[in-house]
């Protein structure tokens, strides 16, 4: 059978893009699905990774690996910084403040001439290729799987299940919430870094509220708290729009329909086993 049609530029692009999304959604899954903290500002961390790495690569001419690592770490640090003040918030209050944080980052990027303002950053070297993305996805899945099984992951899960009981069983919930935000944001930033070096052009519009929602939709569709679900949900929602190009104006509509049907018939997501009360 001739499978060469699978390896044209178009398929490669969609696959790379899907891989990048998987990394970010796995990060979101840690924060929202495993820790139970609803975040509506995940794209902000993606933008932090994308911008910091893009600046390094363009203005300073840093090698890709340096930009990649620095971008990821910058995102993780911002995750920790955001994690500290919002520790006390729960549910809708938490959602609103993460949303606010996301918008603040976007507006700052939009109004800072140093990072190109509304024009964004262009001429970023196209260092991201499908192999790097594959390695990053494999690493993300491996990392999340091992983390969840460890005593640290267990502690994080217990926060989702019952915060009070968790603290009473000797778990420093403040510390683990920050850890979860840090790692989750780090993966968002890793995705952002790969994204910037894949698109070679970024501007603040790419990282708006809709992007955060899109990532959340992928997670909810696949199943919160499930690594397999996060991956599957991302693949479905990253590729469906490609199949629906003929009806380009209605693409977002299908998104909505898929989610509504999902909530009615399988609220825990395609592969989710648990219910997350955020």
């Amino acid at each position: 059978m001739d499978l060469s049609f699978l390896f044209n530029d178009y398929v490669m692009q969609v696959t790379t893009n899907t891989g990048i999304n998987i990394i970010m959604v796995l990060g979101l899954n840690l924060i929202t699905g495993v820790t139970g903290q609803l975040s509506l500002g995940h794209a902000a961390f993606m933008s932090i990774g994308a911008y910091s790495s893009a600046i390094l690569s363009t203005s300073l001419g840093a090698p890709f690996i340096v930009s990649l690592v620095t971008g990821t770490l910058t995102g993780a640090i911002f995750g920790a910084i955001l994690g500290i003040p919002i520790l006390r918030l729960r549910g809708d209050y938490l959602a609103i403040s993460t949303l606010g944080f996301g918008e603040i980052i976007r507006v700052i990027l939009l109004n800072t001439d140093l990072v190109g303002g509304a024009l964004g950053i262009y001429n970023i070297p196209d260092s991201t290729n499908i192999y790097i993305v594959f390695i990053a996805v494999a690493f993300a899945i491996f990392f999340m799987y091992r983390l969840e099984k460890s005593r640290h992951g267990m502690a994080i899960k217990s926060i989702r299940e019952d915060e009070i009981a968790s603290e009473m069983m000797g778990i420093n919930i403040a510390r683990y919430k920050i850890i979860s935000f840090t790692i989750g944001s780090g993966f968002a930033a890793l995705g952002g870094t790969l994204y910037a070096h894949f698109m070679t052009y970024i501007n603040p519009v790419d990282f708006g509220f809709m992007k955060s929602i899109e990532q959340l939709c992928m997670l909810v569709l696949g199943g919160m708290g499930s690594i397999f679900g996060a991956v599957a949900g991302t693949i479905v929602l990253s590729t469906i729009p490609e199949f629906l190009r003929f009806a380009s104006e209605y693409r977002m509509l299908t998104y909505g329909i898929v989610l509504i049907l999902m909530m009615i018939f399988r609220p825990q997501g395609l592969f989710g086993k648990i219910k997350v009360n955020v």
Binding site: A155, E161, M169, G170
Partner: peptide
């Protein structure tokens, strides 16, 4: 009762060993 409801009985015990 405040168990970690969606986790297994074993996991409930293991979490308590955290510290």
């Amino acid at each position: 009762i405040r168990l970690f409801g969606q986790l297994s009985a074993l996991d409930n015990i293991i979490i308590a060993m955290h510290s």
